[in-house]
Design a protein around this nucleic acid. Structure first.
Length: 413
RNA sequence: GCGGGAGUAGCUCAGUCGGUAGAGCACCAGAUUGUGGCUCUGGGUGUCGUGGGUUCGAUCCCCAUCUCUCGCCCCA
C-alpha cells in the first residue's frame, strides 16, 4: 500500500468541517481588524529564509526542504511565512502605498522534523503581520487580534507569555552579560548549550535540560538590562493588554527561535498539547526588511499552528450529522431517469438531495434516507409511475401524499 | 538526529504458551409481497504494517524497515 509521506496528513471529509470552521474565523476576524489576505508561493529562493531566520537556527540548519531545481537554483519549501511575506511586500512595494500595511495569511509550511503529535512535516499556519508602525500600539494590536481569534474559536484555556528583547543596544549589552555568566559554568552546560554559547547565547535560556535550568535560574535577567526606550515600549504593550483584559505572564526566559525578533516577543501555550505546548507565537522584527534588502520598516506579527489549534479545540466539535432535504427513491431502475430529473430541479432551487446509485431495494433506500436524515423522501413506485405521479413522504411524521409529475413546482415553493 | 511504546476487520480493541483469527460498533441482506428509525435473524467484509530469517508450519519467535505515538531536540 502506498502511504502518504511521513509527517504529512490527509484531511479527510470527516474532519474538514473543523478546518472550514476555523478558516472562516481567520478570515472574518482578520478582516474586522482591517487585515488583508496575502498568498505567496509555497517555495522561495533559499536565501529568503537563510538570510532572515538566522544561520544558527535549527530551522535553517537542518529542517528546511531545500533542493536544486533544473535551472541550478537553490529552492526551499517555505518553513515559515514572515520572511516570504516580507520578500513579497518589498518586491511589490506594498509598504509604499500607505504608512500601515496589515496582512494575514493561511497555508501549508514545511519542516523536516521528527514527527510527533502536533508536529508535522507539512503543517498549516495562520498569521497576521502589521507593517509600518514602530509603536507598541501595533504590538498590542496583533496580540489582541490573536487573542480574539482564539476566543472566537472557543479556546479560553491557554497561557500568553510575553517578554521583550529590547533594542539592539539592549540585546548587545545583555548578550555580553549572558556570555560572561555562562562562561563560568561552561563545563556544566549541556552539549547543545555549549554550542549555543558560541553561536546564540540567548537561546540557552530556552533549554529544558535540567542541569541547564539550574544554571539559568541565576543568570542575568534581560529585564535588568533594558534601556529607556526598551522599557517604555514594553510597559506600554503591557498597559494596552491589561486595558483589554488580556491576561499574560512576563517570562524573561522567553526568547523564541528565530533571530529576527526585537522588543516584544510572545507565545501562546496550552497544557493540552504535551511536549509541543506552544501553538502560536510572534514578536516584533524591525530589522528584517533591511536584512532582505528592503527599506527599513518596523513590523510585528504572529503565527499560529492550525493543527495544534484543532487539537486543542477538538473536543468542542460534535460529530456533525449528515442531512439533506430530499432523498429520491425509485422502486425500479427504470424510474431513475425521472428521479435524476427531479433531483436536478430541486438542486437548482437550493435543496440538498441524495439519490440511490446502487439500484437497491426500496427498503434499503428508505434506510439510507434515514441515515442521511432526509426531511422528505420522494418515492417513485410502480403504481405511481403508471399514473405519472410520485409519493412525497414526510420522514418526521411518516405521512405521505401523491404528487403528479406536472406539479413538481409544488416542491420548490 | 537520539531514546522508549505501538501497528490484528471501515472504527475501537481482544486473541493464538507457534497449527493463517474473533467481539462490539459500522456495513450488507432478510423477518416485512412496494416504505426508514426500534427489535430479531443471517452475513466477516482481514496480505494480523511491510520485507527477510528460524521452523514441518509464523499474526505470534528473531532481524530489518515503514508509519504512528511518548520524551529529547526544535518549534507552530
Amino acid at each position: 500500500m502506498i502511504q502518504s509521506i511521513r509527517g504529512t496528513k490527509d484531511i479527510l471529509p470527516t474532519e474538514i468541517n473543523k478546518w472550514h470552521y476555523i478558516e472562516d474565523i481567520f478570515h472574518r476576524v482578520s478582516n474586522l481588524f482591517g487585515y488583508n489576505e496575502l498568498r505567496t508561493p509555497i517555495f522561495e529562493k533559499t536565501e529568503v529564509f537563510s538570510r532572515s531566520i538566522g544561520e544558527t537556527s535549527d530551522i535553517v540548519n537542518k529542517e528546511m526542504y531545500t533542493f536544486t531545481d533544473k535551472g541550478g537554483e537553490s529552492i526551499t519549501l517555505r518553513p515559515e511565512m514572515t520572511a516570504a511575506l516580507v520578500r513579497s511586500v518589498i518586491q511589490h512595494q506594498l509598504a509604499e502605498q500607505s504608512s500601515i500595511l496589515r496582512l494575514w495569511y493561511f497555508g501549508p509550511f514545511f519542516r523536516y522534523e521528527r514527527p510527533q503529535k502536533g508536529r508535522l512535516r507539512q503543517f498549516h499556519q495562520y498569521g497576521a503581520e502589521c507593517l509600518g508602525s514602530p509603536y507598541p500600539e501595533a504590538d498590542a494590536e496583533v496580540i489582541i487580534l490573536a487573542d480574539l481569534i482564539l476566543k472566537t474559536c472557543g479556546i479560553y484555556d491557554y497561557d500568553l507569555l510575553i517578554n521583550t528583547l529590547g533594542t539592539n543596544q539592549t540585546r548587545i549589552r545583555y548578550r555580553k552579560a549572558l556570555v560572561e555568566y555562562f562562561q563560568k559554568f561552561k563545563n556544566d552546560l549541556s552539549e547543545d548549550s555549549k554550542f549555543r554559547l558560541e553561536t546564540n547565547p540567548l537561546r540557552i535560556l530556552d533549554s529544558k535540560d535540567t542541569g541547564d535550568l539550574e544554571i539559568i535560574k541565576n543568570s542575568p535577567n534581560i529585564l535588568d538590562y533594558l534601556d529607556e526606550e526598551s522599557l517604555n515600549h514594553f510597559s506600554k504593550v503591557q498597559d494596552y493588554l491589561k486595558y483589554n483584559n488580556i491576561r499574560f505572564t512576563i517570562t524573561s526566559q522567553l526568547v523564541r527561535g528565530l533571530d529576527y525578533y526585537c522588543h516584544t516577543v510572545f507565545e501562546f501555550r496550552s497544557k493540552k498539547l504535551g511536549a509541543q505546548d506552544s501553538f502560536g507565537g510572534g514578536g516584533r522584527y524591525d530589522g528584517l526588511f533591511e536584512q532582505l534588502g528592503g527599506k527599513k520598516t518596523p513590523a510585528v506579527g504572529f503565527a499560529m499552528g492550525v493543527e495544534r489549534l484543532i487539537l486543542i479545540l477538538d473536543n468542542l466539535f460534535k460529530q456533525t450529522k449528515d442531512s439533506c432535504d430530499y432523498y429520491i427513491a425509485c422502486s425500479n431502475p427504470e424510474f431513475i431517469k425521472v428521479g435524476i430529473g427531479i433531483q436536478k430541479k430541486l438542486i437548482e432551487n437550493n435543496f440538498s438531495t441524495r439519490i440511490d446509485l446502487m439500484r437497491r431495494s426500496l427498503k434499503a433506500q428508505l434506510r439510507e434516507a434515514n441515515k442521511y436524515n432526509a426531511k422528505y423522501v420522494i418515492i417513485i413506485g410502480d403504481l405511481e409511475f403508471k399514473n405519472q405521479k410520485f409519493i412525497l413522504k414526510d420522514m418526521q411524521n411518516g405521512t405521505q401524499k401523491e404528487i403528479s409529475f406536472d406539479d413538481i413546482e409544488f416542491l420548490v415553493k
